[in-house]
Design a protein around this nucleic acid. Structure first.
Lengths: 340, 340
DNA sequence: AAACCTTTCGAAAACGTTTTCGTGTTGAAA
DNA sequence: TTTCAACACGAAAACGTTTTCGAAAGGTTT
C-alpha cells in the first residue's frame, strides 16, 4: 500500500527544501531549470498531487458548494442538483449534499456543520417546517459570516440573498388561463397548505385569473392537501361531490392521482376533465394519458443558482450587497390531459 | 459582518494561551475550573465552533464520503444517495456527490479530485464507459492508497473491494419464471448491451430459466437497446413482427415505452401482453396500467453501502482485506401489467 | 579590489487545530 | 528550611501547503 506522497517527503528524498519543491512544481522562475526538472520528474514518478485539505486551510477556500434540500428522491430536486453540478464541475468546484428531510432541525444542523469551514457557500431550498416556522436565524448567521447563499424555488422574502425561482404566480395564471380559453369554467385547484411558498403563490395566480375573468371563486373547489396521506381521500371527495371540468395541480403527484381516480370513476380525460400540473417531471411524460404541465426547468435553475453563487465567491472582494432574484421562464407543455 | 472566531482570537482576548483555550473547551482536567468556565462562556458568547478543515488536516480524517454515480436524475440512484445520506448523517459524515455522466474520463477526474484528501472513502457505481473499457486503474490507485471503496449495482469482479448488489440473475430468473407460471411462453427481453454488468446478468437469468423449462431461446425476441434514442424504433419492430405474450424489461423506461406502443396498437395489457420490469421506481407506480416490477431497494442498498464503508473507516487499523459482497433481496411487486 | 547585481535556494510564517511535554508556583511533608 | 508532589498553564510540534524574505554564491562593473 503506497500512501500519498507529500512535499516534505519529496524534499527529503531529493535533499532540497520544501520551498524548493513547492516552487519547482509551480514553475517558479526562482528555481534553476536543473532542479526544477529533477523535482518535477520525481513528483510525476511518485504521482504527487497537492493535498486539498491543506490547500483549503491555507487559502481559506474549499472550492466546495453546500447544497441543502428537503429531499433528493424527487425529480425536480434531482435535476437542480444536476444543473448545479454541471456548473460546479466546469468551475472546479465540488458539491456536498445534505438533506433536511423537510425538518427544520436537520436543516439547521446541516447548515452549522457545513458552515464551519466545509464549504464556501450554500445553495438551498427551504424545508416545509422552516417555511412554516419562519425562523431563518441559521441562514442569517451564515450570511453574516460573509458566506454567500443562493435560495431556489422555496424561498423567503425575509432573507436577503440571491434567489432563483420561477414566476409561480404568473405560471399558475397562464396555465389556468389556458384552461379557461378552452371554455372550461369549473376549475378545481389541488394545492398545498399555504405556508409552502410556492403553493401559496400558485394559488394566488389561480385566484387572480378567475377574478380577471369574472369567474366567481368557489372555495370548495380549492383543495389544500397537507400530506400525501389523505391525498386520495380529498380528491375523491371533490370528484364525487362537485362537477368540475378542469383541474390545476401544483405538482405531478396530485395530478396523476386525480387522473387515476377520475378514470376509475369513468370520467374521461381530457373529454370530461382537463388536467394541468406544475413540474414537468418523469410522471407527466410517461403516465397515460400524458399530462400537460408547466415546465420547471430544474437544470436551468440549478445552473443559474450555481453561477450566481460562484460569481459571488470569485468576486468576494467588495461585497455588492446588491442581491438579485433571477426568474427562470416556464412554458406550458401541452400533452394529452387537456382538450385541444 | 462577524467572521468566525478562532482559538487564537479567544486566547488573545482572554490573555491566555491557545492551548489553554483548546483544553478548556475540551474539558481537560489540566485546566482550573475558573479559567475553564471563563473560556467556555466566552466561546459560547462568540459562538465558537472548531474549523472542520483544520480538524481534517490534523486528524487526517475528513468525515466525508465521496459518491460517484453515473447520473442523479434517475430514481434508483437518487434513492441510493438518500440511503447513504441517512447512515452518513447518523454517523456524523457528510457526502460529496460527483456525477460521471456515464463518462470514463469524468469518473477518473472526479475520483482523483476527491482522492487528494477530500474524502475518506468512496461509494460508487461504474459508468457505462468504464464498464465497457474495463479500465479500473483509478479505482486500483485509490484502493492501493488505503482508501476504502464500496461498489454498488454496477460493479466489476476485477476490482477487489466491498460490494453491494441485488442478485440480478436470480431476480430475472424468478420474474421470468413468474411469467411462465402464468402460461406465457413467448417472452421477449428488453435489455441493454452486454457490457453493462447488470444488463448482462439479467439476460443470463432470463436465458437460464428458459433453458430450465425447455423453452427454446428465440434470439429475435432479445432486444439489446444501446441508447434510449432508438428505443421506440426497436420495440415497434418487435411488436409488429413477432407475436409475443410477455415482456421482461431491464428497466422501467423500456417497460413503459413498450406498454405505450403496445396499447397504441390495440394490444391489451395484461390480457394480450404481460409486462414485468426491473427497478421499482416512480413510473411503475403511476403509469396506467401500473407495472409489475422487481423491487430494487435503493434506500437499503445505499444504507448497506454506507455501513460497510464506515465500518472500514472506523476499523481502519488492521485492514481485513476480507472483502464482502452483500446481496440485497428483491421481490416481485405484482401490479396491473401482468395477468393474474 | 571593492561594490553591486543575479541567481538560486532555504527558513519561517501562516492557515486552525490538538496534544505532548516542560515549567513555574504553591502548599504540604520531612 | 529543604524537598517534592500537585496544580495550572504555556511553548512548540504536527498536519501539508504557499509565499515572503533573507542570504549565500557567483559574476560583473567600477
Amino acid at each position: 500500500m503506497r500512501r500519498k506522497v507529500t512535499l516534505k517527503q519529496i524534499a527529503k528524498e531529493l535533499d532540497v527544501s520544501i520551498s524548493t519543491v513547492s516552487k519547482s512544481l509551480r514553475d517558479s522562475p526562482e528555481i534553476s531549470e536543473d532542479t526544477r526538472l529533477k523535482v518535477q520528474a520525481f513528483a510525476k514518478l511518485y504521482n504527487y498531487k497537492p493535498n486539498n485539505i491543506a490547500l483549503s486551510l491555507k487559502n481559506k477556500k474549499t472550492k466546495t458548494i453546500g447544497i441543502i434540500i428537503p429531499e433528493i428522491v424527487h425529480h425536480f430536486f434531482a435535476t437542480v442538483i444536476s444543473g448545479i453540478e454541471q456548473v460546479a464541475n466546469e468551475c472546479g468546484y465540488n458539491v456536498i449534499v445534505c438533506l433536511s428531510d423537510e425538518s427544520f432541525d436537520k436543516e439547521v444542523i446541516n447548515m452549522e456543520m457545513l458552515a464551519n469551514g466545509s464549504t464556501d457557500g450554500f445553495i438551498m431550498s427551504l424545508s416545509k417546517e422552516t417555511q412554516q416556522k419562519k425562523d431563518f436565524h441559521h441562514l442569517q448567521e451564515v450570511i453574516n459570516q460573509g458566506m454567500p447563499v443562493v435560495l431556489f424555488d422555496r424561498i423567503s422574502n425575509d432573507i436577503l440573498c440571491d434567489k432563483v425561482i420561477i414566476d409561480d404566480q404568473l405560471a399558475a395564471y397562464e396555465a389556468t388561463n389556458f384552461l379557461i380559453s378552452k371554455g372550461l369554467k369549473k376549475i378545481a385547484l389541488l394545492t398545498t397548505v399555504d405556508y409552502v411558498s410556492v403553493g401559496k403563490l400558485r394559488t394566488d395566480g389561480y385566484l387572480n385569473v378567475l377574478h380577471d375573468h369574472g369567474i366567481e371563486v368557489d372555495e370548495s373547489l380549492i383543495i389544500r392537501i397537507e400530506d400525501t396521506e389523505h391525498c386520495d381521500e380529498k380528491i375523491n371527495e371533490l370528484l364525487e361531490n362537485k362537477s368540475v371540468d378542469a383541474i390545476l395541480a401544483v405538482n405531478e403527484l396530485f395530478a396523476v392521482t386525480a387522473i387515476k381516480l377520475a378514470m376509475s370513476k369513468g370520467i374521461k380525460i381530457p373529454e370530461d376533465l382537463s388536467v394541468v400540473a406544475f413540474t414537468d417531471g418523469i410522471i407527466s411524460k410517461y403516465s397515460t394519458p400524458t399530462i400537460t404541465t408547466i415546465s420547471q426547468n430544474g437544470i436551468k435553475m440549478g445552473r443559474k443558482a450555481a453561477e450566481m453563487l460562484i460569481k459571488r465567491l470569485e468576486l468576494e472582494d467588495e461585497e455588492d450587497e446588491h442581491y438579485k432574484t433571477e426568474i427562470i421562464e416556464t412554458n406550458l407543455i401541452i400533452r394529452e390531459s387537456t382538450k385541444s
